[in-house]
Simulated scan of single mutants.
Amino acid sequence: MTNAEKLTLAKHACHIRMGVIEGTHSAKCGHPGGSLDIAELLSYLYFVEMNIDPKDPKKADRDRLVLSKGHAAPALYAALAERGYFPVEDLKTLRKIGSYLQGHPNMNETPGVDMSTGSLGQGISAACGMALGAKHAGKPINVYTIVGDGEVEEGECWEAFMFAAHYGLSNLCVVLDRNHLQIDGTTETVMNSAPLEEKLKAFNFNVVTIDGHDYDQIEAAMQAFHAETAKPTCIIMDTTKGKGVSYMTNSVDWHGKGPNDDEYKIAIEELNAAYAALEQEEN
């Protein structure tokens, strides 16, 4: 990947973060912390990796993305808007009555959403079914799913992992967002699921561990996914919760609340400055 391509993706990621802040500020609620940390991943998936068409959101042979950690919907919506599925201005309707952008993704209402999610553990299970269905149909469809490191405390996730390995779902890419924080504190103190790499390898996954904010590493991990033809892949992605906004960074307090007016102003100023720096670097 060239530096110019990485800069373009970084600008998309910055816009995604702005969208997260716009939405959660307008809603006065939501989950900004775990949304901000997946901006680089979403920019790579929607602008490089996935076979999709915003003009035809339901095209039969499209790749699928299942946001299993459905509370990070503000990031998904911001990515979809950035990619052109619907107007960016609509992000301000997050969680409002009558809006098609609710607190968790709804495949029946929101263009580009492939699976309704929210109850943790169910998204990864649905993704497994989609991947198996594509295999049976002989379709070249890849299924991507984003799970949280708090979410994998759920037994249903491990049942899904076992299913994926049993059926050799090489078209399934699980991205495990390891930011080490969940609603009640650190994942290590609430319910330590380490060592994740060893456990997933024992479940017969192709496992790759990366810095989730590094585009070269994201690209290399996706290449490893495509090179694997016999088993599912799990990309364990080390991230910083609240990435991009100083007072949200690595703070469990920002798991589930929206910024007030003063906090919104600070966040947008920081993100605008980050975007300006990217433009200067590009020039």
Rank of each mutant, 00 (worst) to 15 (best):
8 T>E: 15
8 T>G: 02
8 T>M: 09
9 L>W: 03
10 A>M: 15
14 C>A: 15
23 G>E: 12
32 P>T: 05
35 S>D: 08
36 L>Y: 09
39 A>M: 07
44 Y>S: 13
47 F>N: 09
47 F>D: 03
53 D>T: 10
63 D>W: 03
63 D>P: 13
63 D>R: 11
65 L>C: 02
65 L>M: 00
66 V>K: 11
83 R>E: 10
85 Y>S: 10
89 E>C: 05
99 S>L: 03
100 Y>W: 04
101 L>G: 07
105 P>F: 11
108 N>Q: 15
108 N>F: 07
119 S>L: 04
124 I>Y: 03
132 L>G: 07
132 L>S: 03
133 G>R: 04
138 G>K: 00
142 N>V: 11
144 Y>H: 10
145 T>Q: 03
148 G>T: 04
150 G>T: 02
151 E>K: 07
156 E>Q: 13
158 W>S: 08
162 M>G: 12
162 M>W: 07
169 L>Q: 06
169 L>D: 03
170 S>V: 01
171 N>F: 00
171 N>K: 02
173 C>M: 09
175 V>Q: 10
175 V>Y: 00
177 D>R: 11
181 L>D: 00
181 L>S: 08
182 Q>G: 02
183 I>H: 13
187 T>D: 12
188 E>S: 12
189 T>V: 15
190 V>D: 13
199 K>V: 03
204 N>Y: 14
206 N>T: 08
211 D>T: 09
211 D>A: 01
212 G>I: 07
218 I>P: 15
224 A>K: 15
229 T>S: 06
230 A>V: 14
231 K>N: 02
244 G>M: 14
246 S>D: 06
246 S>R: 02
247 Y>H: 11
251 S>L: 01
252 V>W: 00
253 D>V: 14
258 G>L: 13
260 N>P: 08
261 D>P: 05
265 K>R: 08
278 L>T: 07
